[in-house]
Amino acid sequence: MDEFREPDAADSAPENGDTSRSGSARQEGHTSEFDVSRRDFIGGTGATIVAANAMPLGAQEAAPSSGNDLAETEVPRSRIAITVNGARHQVDVEDRWTLNELLRDHLELTGSKLGCNRGECGACTVLVDGEPVYSCSTLAVWADGRSILTVEGLGEGGAISRLQQAFIEHNAPQCGFCTSGQLMSATALLERNANPTANEVREALAGNLCRCSNYNAIVEAVLAATETGGA
């Protein structure tokens, strides 16, 4: 699953390892204020998020305001309730946020990718109430009351799903950028049709482009994850 994770560690490493900055007398008095990771800082200033389950937003209250309060108050916002990978969230969103923005930038679920941002490539595919949609092309506020499944929610008890295992065994990902979208479309297909033909797999995945053009291996992997194993 490592290929689906953003390099959080790499984000905070420069701060921790930068001895010249931590040794600066000028900043010593402000250590508590500056001792936050870049991710937490951006998360805290970008939005006020109220999450029902525990979210790592401890820095939120301490973070300084972004300095453009007028602009922020003018952007219309709404409170929504959504379930993501089984966890319920109450979230304040800007009306203009796409579902992809909410998931990636504010709930820290970076498994669904942002490719074209115009409903063409499929890298952002997530399941809404079990059906695949382009999360870049629907609004977070329209997902109010809906149940979302992202690639982070596949598999159970820390184990990857049968489909994900098949992707590994059949080398379905090359660069891997489209993989989470392919997995979500294929997961929905296998839910509605446990034994699709190769053509049905191709049809179901037509909205997920692979710039490495590894389509044959992707179809093989999905067929291997069917009940009959593609036989």
């Binding site: 409903g119 695949p132 382009y134 629907t138």
Partner: peptide
């Protein structure tokens, strides 16, 4: 029309 994702929405 288009793709499954677009037909769903």
């Amino acid at each position: 029309v288009a793709t499954r994702q677009i037909r769903n929405a």
